[in-house]
Amino acid sequence: MSNHLPEVFQRCERENRAALVGYLTAGDPNVQTSERLMLTLAEQVDILEIGMPFSDPAADGPTIQAASERALTAGAHIDDVFAIAKRVRQAKPEIGIVLMGYANVPYTMGFELFASKAKQSGVDGVLLVDIPAEESGICAEAFKSQNLSQIMLLAPTSTEERIKLAVNIAEGFIYYVSLAGITGAEMGEVAKIKEKLSLIRQYTKLPICVGFGVKTPKQAESIALFADGVVVGSHFVSQITSNIDDRDAMLSSLSSTASAMAEVMKRQG
């Protein structure tokens, strides 16, 4: 029942770099291609975030909404999500694997069964966008019993009081949302992100990864200087969208985009 997340961040710290966290929606554009894409991305990232497609992704912008729709239209099921995680785990024993999505999918399966399937598939943590600290009791036991980290979001709108609530529950890492908005929007101002991270660090020793809106290596580099990890989502998903009819181009474009991001994780000096 090991959990790779602590090791991943220790390794990155030793190498004086931020962790690259990469997101793709499972089953996009179809299950078979998605598995190839995930394996490709897993070569470049420290933590792979596997999105569970959902019919009503209310916290996502058009790019990830479309990814969810493509996956569901192509017939992706939750068991495909687990199967993809398992394949990635076999290929990459050392990386972190996190499932991300909306509460209704695991709720409907039952959090216990969901957690046990996730663990058997080599998953380390789960991030449910619409389960804030106040409601986390609904799944905390189930995740804990499988040694799955419950990853919590914090945002520019999180007050000190809310930060305390969230860090109390959070495990693995904190996912800091760079902007008050949805995925795929413009990244928040770096100075403000930095300031908020200092505040959060007063309350927790957990690593903090920053995501939402990171699209260029330059942006990623500026975040990597002070965050423990940088999350790239919509920008990777866009590589699918812009090469939708050409699988080889899709794979190579994802690979080169991810490798450009991985390169800038290293902090100088």
Partner: peptide
């Protein structure tokens, strides 16, 4: 206090919306 009517209700919202 959390807006639960029995086991229903609550506030299953993204962190960004919790303060608003």
């Amino acid at each position: 206090e959390g807006g639960h009517f029995g086991k229903y209700g609550g506030r299953f919202a993204a962190e960004t919306l919790m303060q608003p």
